[in-house]
């Protein structure tokens, strides 16, 4: 890890100014659970860290209005144990609570977590040129394609990159049409969480749509009755403290036994947090049965293009969606 400078401004404006002044090699750091980890691996090589975690006001949690507003620097742990979130939006509490460990959730922020980078093993292990990786070194190739791809994406991948978007929280947010507020040198803007992420295409090194110097100052979730009948279901290689093999965020609005409107998003299987709209269409307006839920799950993977070792995730992912639908439906509205 190269030598770095560090500053911890108290306001967003000061941070944006510090970032601009630091020039090349400047990076924001919040909880640091991704960035510092990747610095230790030699994958991230910033020269200047601007710590945004202490910006005043960005740790606030406001769940009282028509929009739930989480300051970008609120920790994952704090949001996960907010009473309104736990009672009315179990998918949010579960997505946060099933991520990493309590230690890391006490550090990581709900804004920073949206920018978590992939766990692709060839990406993480490649610092000294061990493996070609278009994400790390554009144009070098992709070692994961034709390699050990059990953990690679089967949705949204390109010929240049199959790296999975690793997060849980973004998946739940995408299901609920959440948005982020972003502050940068050119002022403040908002955009859907889904629009934060770029598909890999030919440029997998470009992962996010944030512009240089921008900070995620808030995460905003439109209040919805669907939140109560919701879940974040996550299957992994052990019972806890692991990334998803396949996960599903599901929120339902029901008319009796019929699904009025379903929101379904997938994690662990795609290159970005993956909204499964075709699957939603299949179950919307339908009487809820396990069979229909499973068909919905399969519909979510209709476009899947598995590699050598991850085809099982089509079946697994469909079952995870189906289980999530049934769990969500079983919750009181």
């Amino acid at each position: 890890m190269r030598a770095i400078t560090y500053t911890r401004p108290a306001t967003a404006q000061a941070a944006i100014t510090a970032f601009a002044q630091a020039g090349e090699g400047a990076r924001y750091i919040a909880g640091g659970t991704t960035l510092y980890d990747l610095m230790k691996l030699g994958i991230e090589t910033p020269a200047h860290l601007v710590d945004v975690s202490a910006i005043e006001g960005l740790g606030s949690i406001d769940t009282g209005g028509d929009v739930l507003r989480f300051g970008g620097m609120a920790t994952m742990a704090d949001v996960a144990r907010d009473r309104v979130v736990m009672e009315r939006y179990p998918l949010l509490a579960e997505a946060l609570g099933k991520a990493a460990s309590q230690q890391l959730r006490n550090m990581a922020t709900v804004g920073g977590n949206l920018l978590q980078r992939t766990r692709c093993l060839y990406f993480r292990n490649g610092a000294s040129g061990l493996y070609p990786c278009n994400k790390r070194e554009p144009g070098s190739g992709c070692a994961a394609i034709g390699g050990l791809d059990r953990g690679q994406a089967l949705l949204g991948q390109s010929d240049a990159c199959t790296a999975v978007s690793p997060g849980d929280w973004p998946v739940a947010l995408v299901a609920l049409d959440a948005s982020v507020e972003v502050e940068g040198p050119d002022g403040t803007r908002t955009m859907p969480v889904a629009d934060l992420y770029r598909m890999p295409g030919d440029t997998p090194h470009l992962e996010f749509t944030l512009r240089p110097g921008e900070i995620i100052t808030a995460v905003m979730v439109p209040a919805t009755a669907a939140g109560r009948r919701s879940t974040y279901h996550k299957v992994r290689d052990r019972e806890s403290y692991a990334f998803a093999l396949a996960s599903a965020a599901v929120a339902l609005e029901m008319d009796g036994e019929t699904v009025r409107e379903a929101r379904i998003a997938l994690g662990g299987v795609a290159t970005v947090p993956w909204r499964a709209r075709a699957a939603e269409a299949l179950i919307n307006g339908a009487p809820l049965t396990r069979e229909r839920a499973l068909a919905t799950g399969h519909a979510a993977f209709a476009d899947a293009r598995p590699g050598r070792h991850n085809a099982f995730k089509i079946q697994l992912g469909a079952e995870v969606v189906a289980d999530a639908v049934m769990i969500a439906a079983g919750r009181a509205s």
Binding site: I29, T33, Y36, D37, S53, S101, L104
Partner: peptide, 27 residues
């Protein structure tokens, strides 16, 4: 592990448990 993956470095910062290995001392 030095990467927040094992918990052996757990300490409390302001009363909350964190992974000391992934916490910049500067923080």
């Amino acid at each position: 592990c030095d990467h927040g993956q094992c918990g052996a470095c757990t300490v409390h910062v302001d009363g909350r448990r964190v992974a000391a290995c992934l916490t910049l001392a500067a923080k």
